[in-house]
Design a binder for these strands. Structure first.
Lengths: 239, 239
DNA sequence: GTCGGACCTTGCCCCTGGGGCAAGGTCAAA
DNA sequence: TTTGACCTTGCCCCAGGGGCAAGGTCCGAC
């Protein structure tokens, strides 16, 4: 006959937890001694260890209660199932560890693998961090608003960026961000851009034309997403 | 500019959770559109994914809040630590899986390995399930009440059970449980038992004599722990 | 132009699995 | 006898949301 504190120590829990299990009907209330103290037997110790083992496996107390007075077959089946999702939870935690590692750097956590690859390509081309960041945010919004479209668009964009002519235009647009709005190179750049789009437009399929400026537009609402030169460029291309 | 539902889907959470993060100050309240709906940007999406990644790793929301506006070094250090105890938790879950497997059978969950081995020995000797169970419960109580004594006693008991003479006595005591209290074998058994203890008592060391009936005594308060024949036997041995 | 269904808003109460603390009563050893 | 470590009940608190109510809004179909 042991006390609640001894029982609790045996199972590695607090006395509070033991009383909690009494309240929830998981552990039978034991007899009391002459001063009202609870007095436990070995059976209680066995039951408590079972409770803790199941609880450690993440089984809710209400279910533990049911399992404790279920027949052997039910219990065995339940344990098999509990073990299965314990296995799954371990796998999940491992995945979380990987994601945690990616939190240190890289965008792979925030966009699809295809977009992440595309962003890596941009960095390799020497595209500015500002621009890459702008693109990333654009793709996040696109993927969120319409994942299927985004997946089509990213495929097109990756083809596009493989074209040396487009690549040159893209890099010059990137550089233009810091130019003066009066810079004489702007009208010429606008012109070349329009020409390029005109000559590649016909290749587009029946679905809505994918303007590569969409990424920029999507990110437009963010602070610092444009510059005087870019505003001017947009005007020139419209006119 | 996306809505709360789109943002929530992107991160795989509910809108309720997103609002919860606003209330807790984890995620900045975004601007509202003309009808009062929250409108989110890519930055919010990035922040939300960070929040979820940390939350999945078991980091409390209050700490996540601190980490989100900590400097890079602090964050990196924190991530390292979080990864560490994620590793520990995975190990813990694996241990839980092992214990879960033992819940299907065996007493190793409830007593020390030494006692478990001793119980296995008893079963191998042909000791009844009733008696083994009684012993187990006795050891649980002993280990709970005084783990150091229990560890000394179990060592002694394992030596004792190695003695063929003691083994025979033990098995006969076990069998006697079901005898009639008038059974003529009882006085003889009591006699042999006393003789054996007398001749082995001198071998005992200075610490209190370890009477092998202690296990039975400890379990005495349990229902069905004795029988008419055993009661008679106890009387005979006292007299 | 209006209808239905899917969205959004705030607010409040509910759940699990206990922890903390109060205000006592009890036990054992020095 | 006193002291410290137990035990008792009772009540409130926490995270991390879920559920539901009672509305307002948006968008596409008819």
């Amino acid at each position: 006959m042991i006390t609640i504190g001894q029982l609790a120590d045996y199972a590695g829990v607090t006395t509070k937890a033991v009383r909690h299990y009494h309240e929830r009907g998981l552990l039978a209330e034991p007899g009391r001694d002459s001063s009202g103290y609870r007095r436990y037997t070995a059976k209680d110790a066995v039951d408590l260890v079972k409770i803790r083992t199941l609880a450690n496996a993440g089984v809710p107390l209400t279910r533990i209660k049911d399992l404790l007075d279920a027949d052997q077959d039910t219990l065995t089946a339940a344990i098999t199932e509990i073990d299965h999702n314990l296995h799954d939870r371990i796998a999940q935690l491992r995945r979380t560890r990987d994601q945690l590692a990616q939190l240190r750097g890289g965008d792979r956590l925030f966009v699809s693998p295809e977009v992440a690859d595309y962003l890596d390509d941009l960095r390799e081309l020497g595209v500015s961090e500002r621009q890459t960041h702008l693109e990333r945010d654009g793709w996040i919004l696109m993927q969120t608003a319409s994942p299927e479209d985004a997946s089509v668009w990213i495929a097109e964009k990756r083809e596009l960026i493989a074209d040396p002519e487009f690549r040159a235009l893209y890099l010059e647009h990137d550089a233009a961000y810091d130019w003066s709005p009066d810079d004489p190179r702007l009208p010429a750049l606008a012109d070349r851009t329009r020409t390029w789009f005109a000559s590649h437009h016909s290749r587009s399929e029946t679905r809505p034309v994918h303007n590569p400026a969409i990424a920029r537009l999507a990110a437009q609402s963010q602070p610092g997403a444009s510059s005087p030169a870019w505003d001017r460029l947009a005007q020139l291309m419209k006119g």
